[in-house]
Write a protein that binds this DNA or RNA. Structure first.
Lengths: 317, 317
DNA sequence: ATGAAAGCGCTAACAG
DNA sequence: CTGTTAGCGCTTTCAT
């Protein structure tokens, strides 16, 4: 029979069994390392589970709605992993009807009965801030987010405020900035701090919502003659390749995206196969990837090689 | 009928019409900006054409074979865009039987009757080298590739040699290096040149097969006190984000990946719809993205802002 | 014009 | 235990 030359037709099979063995991954964008790493995990787990992966981009809430309807109602996929940009709450509760074929990623669905995988960005923001103060000795702080209203930015900012509050440190609104996540805006915001850093002798700490911003801030300050991390310590988010190849090396909060991707697929597939019926809520923590931009020379945690780089880059200034 | 509440079942439709309106994209990896930008173009064109996109990774030749069989024979997709890593020639001719549902990307299929989209890496290597010599005034040259045997690296190296030959410049084998494309190997190779650069007064030119390598070389040289681009000019490949945010800004050869992605989908879809029956061969050129790492002060082509950065970074050394 | 029926390739249920 | 059949949801053809 299947002596070595038979391929069952997937469509016919799907029609009969009423399942496609395909899952969808809906992303707000396809650009950047960020999604690449997520997709790696997704691909890996999907392969193990024997399902195919259909990838789509959906930018606006309307596109998101349309995509769900088309893919899920149309029976193109059995289930969907949804990384939403900015979902309105009522849209979310609408989705509850797809209860057992929809997993929401990186957006807390609260009590709505949907599988939900989250990154604890608030905790990550708090940890990053604490690191800046405790380990890098920052005395004044500034937060540079993405766009106001962006879920990740809002949560990281909340964590920033948590940490400031805990340690009784001032988190003045004038030192909270919003941006488009771009390197260029990081540069501009960094420049606006260069005089401040010259003036008072205290060490500043900058927490940026992604590595591009952090790099921009760092470059602006270095250009104006600041020594990193002595005059200003800087931490980014996402731990992209960039963080490892700039001078000084950039400390960054790492989100385990590959693992998250794997987890999403496994959760969804288990659900689709009826192995689980209660909605799951899973929260991942970010980890600190400490490098020279927050490592002061006397810090015992420092990585030797990274410290070498840090000091040699300071010598250049 | 379709008064607003009807979704035809995709599987049933596919079974009847014998087409799925889905295409597959097979990549050797899913990581890095590189594929992200390609996927953007693919997604965009696919959306316009009304087809879905299934994405899979296939690392080994065996996986590649298996993937084609499964997806195409199994009828999961109508056609496939194949970005192969290192296809053996006989495997390629095997694929000729999928003549009208397979497009090979970034690997020349020669006379085999398959749709074929290519990047002219040889020409790109030549252009990069000429730029180094003519515009950046390089007198001695070194080439840092990826792994030996890698198609992209081999072609870029061939272009490097073309340019050297044209201008009667020495392209000694001892200045041709292979690597794993990593920043770390770039660093190591760069270090091995630092004394050479101190010794003779001539300006060196480095052409690296990707931006990570180029960045590694640049950092190694800068650390040893070399001024870029005065002592050594450096050019990378792919024009990643990295190139725009390091100091000095890195010149890089840009491959129009998004456009390539779009083109692949359009070609494939047209073919599937019977609008074209002859195999197409399409070749894209890379463009020079000139920045400070190859821009000497008197160069009239220089971008003002980037030149500012270049000179200020030189002041630091 | 509108409506009934055949068949796409598979699996599961059933009959022999 | 093996072989036949019904039916998944759609489109297309054919008959009304």
């Amino acid at each position: 029979m299947h002596a070595l030359q038979f391929r069952p037709n997937r469509q016919a099979r799907a029609l009969t069994l009423r399942k496609t063995d395909t899952i969808g991954l809906v992303l707000p964008d396809l650009y950047g390392e960020f999604y690449g790493e997520l997709m790696r995990g997704v691909d890996q787990a999907a392969r193990e589970a024997g399902v195919h992966v259909l990838i789509t981009r959906a930018v606006s809430p309307e596109e998101e709605r349309a995509t769900v309807e088309e893919l899920l109602q149309g029976g193109a996929v059995d289930g969907l992993i949804f990384l939403v940009s900015q979902f309105e709450d009522n849209a979310l509760s609408d989705l509850a009807r797809f209860q057992d074929s929809l997993l929401i990623l990186d957006r807390d669905v609260g009590n709505i009965e949907l599988d939900n995988v989250l990154v604890d960005n608030r905790d990550a923001g708090r940890e990053a801030t604490l690191h800046l103060i405790r380990d890098a000795g920052a005395e004044s702080l500034a937060f540079i987010g993405g766009p106001e209203g962006n879920v990740d930015t809002d949560n990281r900012l909340a964590g920033f405020r948590d940490a400031c509050h805990e340690l009784g440190i001032d988190s003045s609104p004038e030192h909270i900035h919003y941006s488009d996540y771009s390197y260029e805006m990081g540069l501009a915001i960094g420049e606006s701090y260069s005089s401040l850093i010259e003036d008072d002798g205290g060490r500043w700490g900058f927490i940026a919502a992604n590595d591009n911003l952090a790099r921009g801030v760092m470059e602006a300050l270095v250009t104006k003659g600041a020594a990193i991390p002595h005059d200003a310590a800087i931490i980014g988010f996402d731990d992209t390749e960039l963080a490892r190849v700039v001078r000084p090396r950039l400390t960054s909060m790492r989100v385990p995206l590959q693992e998250i991707g794997r987890t999403c697929v496994r959760l969804l597939v288990d659900r689709l196969r009826g192995l689980r019926t209660e909605p799951a809520k899973m929260v991942f923590k970010a980890r600190l990837a400490q490098r020279a931009s927050t490592t002061i020379d006397s810090d015992p945690l420092q990585n030797t090689q990274e410290n070498e780089n840090a000091s040699s880059s300071q010598e250049q200034n």
